[in-house]
Design a protein around this nucleic acid. Structure first.
Lengths: 193, 193
DNA sequence: CATTATTTGTACCGAACGGTAAAATAAATA
DNA sequence: TATTTATTTTACCGTTCGGTACAAATAATG
C-alpha cells in the first residue's frame, strides 16, 4: 500500500555522510544535502528526521564501517608490529594522497560537537574506546605470540597509540611536511619495542 | 580630531577570542559577538573588518599568548623530564577542572577551517611547528645537561610529543575517564626515557 | 477500476544570517 | 563657539537558514 520509495536509503545516507564528513555539521546546509543526496527536503525528513538526527545516523554509519576497517587491517598481519606500522602508514598515505584531507569524521565531531552536545560527547568517546580495545586486543596477541615483552601494559599502550593516531590525523589537516609525520610515526612505534 | 573610540581594542578582541574558541567559526554569529564584545556591528567592522578577519585576529592573539605560555612553563623547571610532565599535567588538569573543555583554539581551527581555507592551513601549521621547536629546544637542553641520552633525536621526539599533545587535547573533548589520559601520559613520557 | 496510503515536487514560512546606509552623537580643531 | 571628523546607534538590506503545508504523483489493495 502507498507509493514506493524511489531512493536507496543506504545510498543517500552515505552521500550525507560524505558531506558532513567533509564540511562538518554547521557548515553543511540542507540545500547542500539535497543536492548531494539527490532527494528533496521532505524526503530527508520523512526518512531520517531533522538535520541533527540525519547527522547522527551518518556518524553512526561512519563509525561502524571505520571500526570494522581498523579491525580487519590489524588482523591481516601476523606480526603485531608490522600490523601497526602498516595501519598507521595507511592512514598517512590516505591523507597525503587526496588533494584535501578529510581526516576522521569522528574526530571532527569530537572537536565540533562533543563539547556542546552530550549525545555526541558519549558517541565519540565510545567509538574511541572501542578502537582502543581493538588496539589492545592486537597488542595482547603480540604478547601471547612472544613478539612483545610479557611485561607490556597492553591497555595503557593501546590508549597512547589511539591518542597518537588522533594527533596525527588532526595535524595532517594543516598539511605538515611529510618528514614531520614520518618522524612522529617512527618515534611512536618505538613504544612497541 | 573626531570622536574618540569608547572601547578597548584589546579587551573586545579578547572577548571575541573567547567566543570563537568556545564555539568555533561557523557556530558563532555576529549577534553572539556583539553581545560578548559589548559593541555594535559597525564598530566591529570598523576596527577588525569582516567576520573572518576578526576570527583571524582573535586566533593570532591566541597563538601568541599560547606560545609564550608554553615556553614559560617549559623553561621554569630545571629538569626537562619534570618540565614536560608538569606541562602535560597542567594541560590535563585544565580540561578536567573546567565544566566544559575548550581545548585549544588552534587545534579547533585546524579541524574546522584548515582543510577548506589555505590561510588557516598555513597559520595553524606554523603555530604547531613553532611549538614543536620550543619542545625541541627543551629536549636539547636536556641533552646538554646530561639528563637525556646524547643519542636522542630531539627533533623527531619533539614532533611526536606535539602529536601526543594534540591527540590528548582532542580526546579530552569527549571526556574520557581520567585513567585513560593518565595512562596515556605515563606511556608518552617514557619516550623521554 | 476505484480507493487508499505513501512519497514526491513545489512553494512557502518565520527567523536568523552577515553586512551596511545613514542619522545621531561626541570629541578635537579652528 | 562653530566646524570638522570620527564613532556610535538604529534601522534596515537581501540572502540563506532549517523546516513544513499542500497538492500532484504513484504504487498496492479491495
Amino acid at each position: 500500500m502507498g507509493r514506493a520509495r524511489e531512493f536507496d536509503e543506504e545510498k543517500v545516507l552515505d552521500a550525507a555522510m560524505q558531506l558532513f564528513w567533509e564540511k562538518g555539521y554547521e557548515a553543511t546546509s540542507l540545500s547542500d544535502l539535497t543536492s548531494r543526496m539527490g532527494i528533496q527536503k521532505p524526503s530527508i525528513y520523512a526518512a531520517f528526521g531533522d538535520k541533527k538526527e540525519l547527522f547522527e545516523a551518518a556518524l553512526r554509519k561512519y563509525m561502524m564501517s571505520r571500526a570494522s576497517h581498523v579491525r580487519t587491517k590489524l588482523q591481516k598481519n601476523p606480526s603485531v608490529k608490522d600490523a601497526f606500522r602498516a595501519f598507521f602508514e595507511g592512514v598517512i598515505a590516505e591523507e597525503y594522497t587526496e588533494n584535501r584531507s578529510r581526516g576522521c569524521f569522528c574526530i571532527n565531531t569530537m572537536v565540533e560537537l562533543a563539547p556542546h552536545d552530550e549525545k555526541f560527547e558519549i558517541l565519540t568517546r565510545e567509538h574511541q574506546m572501542y578502537l582502543s580495545v581493538i588496539f589492545q586486543e592486537t597488542i595482547e596477541r603480540g604478547i601471547q605470540s612472544g613478539e612483545l615483552e610479557f611485561g607490556v601494559n597492553a591497555k595503557a599502550l593501546s590508549q597512547a597509540l589511539i591518542v597518537s593516531l588522533i594527533g596525527l590525523t588532526v595535524i595532517m589537516k594543516s598539511r605538515p611536511e611529510r618528514s614531520f609525520v614520518d618522524n612522529t610515526l617512527e618515534v611512536t612505534l618505538t613504544l612497541l619495542k
